[in-house]
Amino acid sequence: MAEGKKIRITQTGSHIGRTDDQRATLIGLGLNKRHRTRELVDSPEVRGMINKVRHLVRVEDDKAA
């Protein structure tokens, strides 16, 4: 299976005081503390998760892919 385009996601906001589903979404993205970064495959599922917590993360497109 060929890998698709990658995106870099960095958590910029805290999960404190957020709803349970937003906390679960951050964990699903592999983020649990501020300033943590993950590289994930750009897919509709990941984009949907990012949209749910867009106020808590920064997204960068990977130029090398």
Rank of each mutant, 00 (worst) to 15 (best):
A65H: 12
I9D: 00
G17D: 09
L31P: 03
K33Y: 10
T12W: 08
T37M: 13
R54H: 14
L56G: 02
R58E: 13
V57D: 00
N51F: 05
E3Y: 11
G30N: 06
A65C: 11
T37F: 03
N32K: 13
K5L: 11
R54I: 14
L56Y: 00
K6Y: 09
T10D: 03
R54Y: 11
L29N: 01
L26V: 02
K5A: 12
Q22A: 10
R23W: 01
A2I: 09
R47V: 01
L31C: 00
K63T: 14
H55V: 11
D61F: 09
V53K: 03
K6V: 09
Q11I: 00
D61C: 05
R36P: 01
L56M: 06
T12R: 15
V53W: 02
H15L: 15
R36L: 11
M1W: 10
M1Q: 08
D20P: 03
V41N: 14
P44I: 03
D62E: 14
I16W: 09
L29H: 01
G28T: 00
R18C: 09
T19H: 14
D21A: 07
I9A: 04
H55L: 08
R47N: 10
L29M: 02
R18F: 06
K6L: 09
L40W: 05
H35Q: 14
V41W: 11
L26K: 00
I7N: 06
